[in-house]
Simulated assay, not measured.
Amino acid sequence: MPRVKKLLGGTLSLSDHTAQISETYTMIKVLNKLTKLSMSSMKALV
Rank of each mutant, 00 (worst) to 15 (best):
M1E: 08
M1A: 07
M1S: 06
P2M: 09
P2S: 13
P2V: 10
R3N: 15
R3E: 13
R3G: 08
V4E: 02
V4G: 00
K5N: 15
K5D: 15
K6H: 03
K6G: 08
K6Y: 01
L7Y: 15
L8V: 06
L8N: 01
G9R: 00
G10P: 00
G10V: 06
G10L: 01
T11F: 04
L12C: 00
L12F: 03
S13G: 04
S13R: 04
L14T: 11
D16T: 13
H17I: 11
T18M: 09
T18K: 10
T18E: 10
A19V: 08
Q20W: 03
I21C: 00
I21N: 05
S22E: 14
S22V: 12
S22H: 14
T24M: 06
Y25H: 14
T26Q: 15
T26K: 15
M27G: 01
M27P: 01
M27C: 08
I28Y: 01
I28M: 05
V30N: 02
V30A: 04
L31P: 03
L31K: 01
N32E: 15
N32C: 14
N32P: 03
K33D: 15
T35M: 07
T35E: 09
T35R: 09
K36D: 11
L37D: 11
L37P: 03
S38A: 13
S38K: 12
M39F: 04
M39G: 03
M39A: 10
M39N: 08
M39V: 05
S41E: 14
M42L: 12
M42Q: 12
M42E: 13
K43W: 11
L45K: 12
V46M: 10
V46P: 05
V46C: 11
